[in-house]
Design a protein around this nucleic acid. Structure first.
Length: 154
DNA sequence: GCCAACGTTGGC
DNA sequence: GCCAACGTTGGC
């Protein structure tokens, strides 16, 4: 099972916001980092698991589990001049930026704080800890199992 | 508000 | 293609 971690500032879009969407499904748009774009466009597949991380809050933490419901497709917000993520270099023919759709599955019974992740030897290698700009990042199966257990699942 | 990390831009 | 400057993210 492939697994990913998606970061979001809850003041912008929270896990609770995702849960409240119709069918709990929403577009994950607005990503403007090439490495993250490559994951969205090429690597993330339907059915992949996603850990939802809240950043820029007093206690940053992984707070919920999601599933990918649609694979990478052009991020239309890049073409909309009125959108805050507008990119004048993007065109319909060469979209540059991509997004996926995700569905919220369940909140973690016990959110896993960043401090706990940092303190765990097998989690301390996660890009989360030293790649602050990477908002979409891969998680190994082993890391996922550890995080699920720390989060109160299984 | 400060600062570390690091991606992007642009001059050469 | 190198590298300095700059901008952004995000923890604290």
């Amino acid at each position: 099972m492939r697994c990913w971690l998606f970061k979001s500032e809850p003041s912008c879009f929270s896990f609770q916001d995702l849960l409240a969407c119709p069918h709990a499904t929403e577009h994950w748009d607005g990503v403007r980092n090439f490495q993250a774009r490559n994951f969205l466009r090429d690597a993330i597949k339907i059915g992949d698991r996603v850990l939802f991380y809240h950043s820029s809050v007093p206690e940053p933490a992984i707070v919920g589990i999601c599933t990918v419901t649609r694979e990478g497709y052009p991020d239309h917000t890049a073409l909309d001049p009125s959108n805050e993520h507008f990119d004048p270099k993007a065109t319909a023919e060469r979209p540059i930026w991509y997004m996926v759709d995700v569905r919220a599955d369940l909140p973690l019974p016990r959110p896993v704080p960043l401090a706990v992740i940092r303190a765990h030897p097998l989690l301390a290698t996660m890009p989360l800890l030293n790649r602050s700009r990477l908002s979409i990042q891969p998680v190994t199966e082993q890391q996922y199992q550890i995080l699920a257990q720390l989060g109160g699942l299984s």
